[in-house]
Design a protein around this nucleic acid. Structure first.
Length: 346
DNA sequence: AAGTGATTCAACCGCCTTCTG
DNA sequence: CCAGAAGGCGGTTGAATCACT
């Protein structure tokens, strides 16, 4: 029954690795491999380290072809795009950046990229606020001058509080809905499709019937495999139509809403998106230009028409996009969503 | 030069999923 | 089928380093 404990916690060294320890671990793995058992590894080498610690050290530092620091603009864009698409799935994001580790990307995001984006956004907000305030002040000053009673003490005008973030589309909306809408719009802009953007088409020439921003990012083989593993896990994401003709369609064509409800979902739940994400969405809108953002909810125009694949090239991963342009062209052109045609007879 | 706060990043922690007996 | 270990992952921590006063 079961197995022996992985390591004697009391007899295990913690903290930074010494060059000697690094050398031992590296030499052994390069000569013998991991042997498929990290827990047994330190004992074999004579290291007083936990197997997990060895694994981490190897993967994040000693492994060949590891790059540290010096993230390029292109890498920044990929990280941002993927973070918006799939959230903090650092291992998946790392799979798209050769030589980068999930830990590195996570650190880079938390310490620099996030601040970079938020800083950019705040600057723009301040500029917008300043512009709005100036206009408002001028108008109120004019009105005050018109209605000023002689001898009355002039008071500081009351400025209505401006929204913390500029509303994207409609006002008077549930903030959560607005967040979702923003995320949705951004995802659409990034080239993705929601389950309600298209009717089901089993005759599509697109071999994989790729639809989502995830699909866009996942087009590259490695990431695709990762996604297939995750998506095909019944505990993570449930296909919305189990009678679909293609199994590939089944597993790629999952229901975003259902997916969002589960704890291990691909999107980590739109409801559960980190609060900062909505702020970042606005940052990215500024990054890519709000005018270019697609309002997929109410324009009445086809999402296919309104979402330009050319836009994605600006994200810095044309190699991902190129494989999808063909898929995109084979997508059915639909302007409105008909649930019955999409889900089939209930 | 010293003190202090901010930043970076390697490493740990704990949770979840997968695997094994 | 079940219990528990291994593997994997994301979040967090804290020592080292940097930047500023």
């Amino acid at each position: 029954m079961g197995r022996a404990p992985c390591c004697d916690k009391a007899n295990v060294k913690k903290g930074p690795w010494s060059p000697e320890e690094d050398a031992k671990l590296k030499a052994y793995i390069e000569a013998n491999g991991t042997g498929g058992n990290w827990i047994a590894l330190p004992q074999k080498i004579g290291l007083k380290r936990c197997g997990k610690s060895c694994r981490l050290r190897w993967l994040n530092y000693l492994r060949p072809n590891i790059k540290h620091g010096g993230f390029s603009e292109e890498e920044d864009n990929i990280i941002c795009s993927l973070f918006i698409s799939i959230g903090s799935r650092w291992s998946i994001i790392a799979a798209q950046l050769p030589g980068r580790t999930d830990n590195d990307i996570k650190n880079y995001w938390n310490t620099r990229l996030k601040k970079k984006l938020l800083g950019k956004q705040r600057k723009e907000q301040q500029a917008r606020r300043a512009a709005s305030c100036l206009t408002l002040k001028q108008e109120m000053k004019r009105e005050n001058e018109n209605y000023m009673i002689p001898g009355m003490v002039s008071q500081a005008p009351y400025w209505p509080q401006l929204p913390a973030v500029m509303p994207l589309t409609s006002t008077n909306q549930d903030p959560q809905l607005k967040d979702k809408e923003s995320i949705r719009n951004l995802l659409v802009k990034l080239g993705g499709r929601f389950s309600d953007d298209y009717p089901q088409s089993s005759t599509s020439t697109n071999p994989m019937n790729l639809r989502y921003p995830l699909d866009v990012s996942f087009a590259q083989d490695q990431l695709y495999e990762n996604s297939m593993n995750m998506i095909s896990s019944p505990s993570s994401i449930s296909p919305i139509n189990s009678t679909c003709t293609s199994e590939v369609i089944n597993i790629t064509h999952f229901n975003v809403n259902e997916a969002a409800a589960g704890p291990n979902n691909m999107f980590q739940g739109l409801d559960g998106f980190p609060a900062e994400l909505s702020e970042l969405i606005y940052s990215l809108e500024g990054f890519y230009g709000t005018d270019n953002m697609v309002d997929g909810s109410s324009t009445g125009t086809s999402s296919v028409e309104s979402s330009s694949w050319g836009d994605i090239n600006s994200l810095g991963y044309p190699q991902i996009v190129s494989g999808f342009e063909a898929c995109q062209q084979s997508m059915p052109q639909v302007s409105t969503f008909d649930e019955s045609s999409y889900f089939g007879p209930q």
